[in-house]
Computed example of a mutant assay.
Amino acid sequence: MRKERIVKRLQRLARQQGRDTEMNIVSLIDIFAILVFYLLVNALVVEILPNPKALKLPESVIQEEPRENTLVQVTLDDVLVNNRRVMSVAEAAAAEGNILPGLKAELMTAPLMQTPGAAAGMVTRGEVNIMADKAIPYQILKKVMATCTETRFAKISLAVIEKHGAGGTP
């Protein structure tokens, strides 16, 4: 009787080993679908402008989200274009006229492009974002904006921190 049980068990094991194992992958597909959805949603939430600790941006109401463009940073010490130092703020303050020569030379390296919806000969350098410390005097900021206009940037945006509470906007 004991041998009979062992034989039956061995026969049952032999039958089970010969069968293909079935796997239910519906729950696995659900997990991957949720993971892909999560990654797609979070991939769209990207902070374009860097947040340097050396700058204290002014607060204001934000009308448009920033786009990735040429970035001019004006810290308390330096003027930077795309994180490369161009000149000091003292040199910018001492510059004669409204055009900053060091900044203009760096901005001229940006490529010209056709203006959408304009005449065939209208070309610009696109858009520029300016991040300036709130303690920077307006005269220096005015020179930076005038230099950007002189180098044919079509749109100049100033980076600010979104104001919460006052004005009814979040």
Rank of each mutant, 00 (worst) to 15 (best):
M1S: 13
R2A: 12
K3N: 13
R5T: 06
R5H: 06
V7S: 15
V7M: 14
L10Q: 14
Q11P: 03
L13M: 08
R15T: 11
Q16C: 04
Q16V: 07
Q16W: 03
Q17F: 06
Q17C: 05
G18P: 03
R19A: 11
R19C: 07
D20T: 12
T21M: 09
M23I: 14
V26A: 15
S27Q: 12
S27M: 10
I29F: 13
I29G: 14
F37P: 01
F37L: 14
L40S: 09
L40C: 13
L40R: 08
N42I: 01
N42Y: 03
A43M: 05
L44N: 07
L44Q: 08
E47L: 03
E47D: 08
E47C: 02
L49F: 01
P50A: 03
P50L: 01
P50W: 00
P50S: 04
P52T: 00
P52Y: 00
P52W: 00
A54N: 10
A54F: 08
A54V: 14
K56S: 12
K56L: 08
L57S: 03
L57P: 05
P58E: 09
S60A: 15
V61P: 11
E64W: 10
E65Q: 10
E65S: 09
P66W: 01
R67K: 12
R67Q: 12
T70F: 07
V72N: 03
Q73V: 07
L76G: 14
D77G: 06
D77K: 14
D78V: 00
D78C: 02
V79I: 13
L80A: 02
V81M: 02
V81L: 04
V81I: 06
V81N: 00
R84Q: 13
R85I: 01
R85E: 03
R85N: 03
V86I: 05
S88A: 04
S88Y: 02
A90H: 06
A92C: 02
E96N: 12
G97M: 06
N98A: 13
I99C: 05
P101A: 08
A105W: 02
E106G: 08
E106A: 15
T109K: 15
T109N: 15
A110E: 13
P111K: 15
P111L: 12
L112T: 09
Q114N: 08
Q114E: 06
Q114Y: 02
Q114L: 10
Q114S: 11
T115W: 00
T115I: 04
T115C: 03
G117C: 00
G117S: 02
G117H: 00
A120T: 11
A120N: 07
A120W: 09
M122N: 03
E127H: 06
V128P: 01
V128R: 05
N129G: 01
N129C: 03
N129A: 04
M131D: 00
M131R: 00
M131Q: 08
K134P: 09
A135S: 15
I136W: 07
I136D: 10
P137A: 14
P137W: 12
Y138G: 14
Q139I: 14
I140F: 10
K142G: 10
K143Q: 08
K143C: 07
K143D: 06
A146Y: 09
C148T: 06
T149H: 11
E150Q: 15
T151H: 04
T151C: 12
T151R: 06
F153G: 00
S157N: 12
V160C: 04
I161V: 11
E162C: 02
K163Y: 05
G168A: 11
P170M: 08
P170K: 07
